[in-house]
Amino acid sequence: MNDTVTTALRRLRDADPATGHPDPHEPSARAMLDRVLHAPDAPVPARPRQTRRRLVLAAAAVAAAVSASGLVIVQPWSQGSRAVAYTVERQGDGSVRVSVKVDQIDDLERLNADLARANARTVFFEGQADCREKLRRHPDFVTQREPVPVGNGESVLNGIIVFPDPMNRELPFWVISPDRIPPGATLVVSFQKLYPVPDAENPNPPRDQTGLGWREDVVTEVPSCVAWQDPLAGKIGN
């Protein structure tokens, strides 16, 4: 850091708007603690884990597929507990196994935090139609191929991310190999939920037939959003 930056940061620290030093022993703080501990629906928890979170594996729906921007659809899956909408698990060989419950993947901050803890070098985004940001793809991964549906491909991105058994709907999962991601790059996995399209035969398709379109990109800079146009929209349930 040069002098200009050092000085600027010192001034920034001095400009901290926070004042005072709240005392955790003052009556209002102790009252807050008491309210938290005696909240009616707060169960007494067990001992916190000492190592990386290993969420209980749940029946999950995930898809995988193909190409530098592969797309995958996950087909109908059963509803389950929202507490296990995904799992992140670091494996002995350094790879990271991820499974996601299609219709319940809402808490991306939590998922991404777990991926960061697992050193997966991977960030998940929900695709946004109004995102104008262009992905800065790594030079080795600039080519895009046509989406390939589940079952037509098993490996994507030079082995960085694979879906070992795309037809296994009992326990589908991805395996990410962070050590194959080029230095300084990040794997971005973006997705969009795809809902069944009502038609004459099935005017009210059930929500549990939610599918998911996936895309993977290796980028040199993590974006703030990922633009998404769903070429597979409408294919679920048809």
Partner: peptide
């Protein structure tokens, strides 16, 4: 920071480095 922002450590480090440079330049 990486945990709070939900990104990799590398990404957090790069973001911080760039943000510091931009802030210093803007302040100047």
């Amino acid at each position: 920071m990486a945990i709070v922002l939900g990104c990799t450590r590398t990404a957090a480090k790069v973001r911080l480095h760039r943000a510091r440079r931009r802030f210093a330049a803007r302040l100047l």
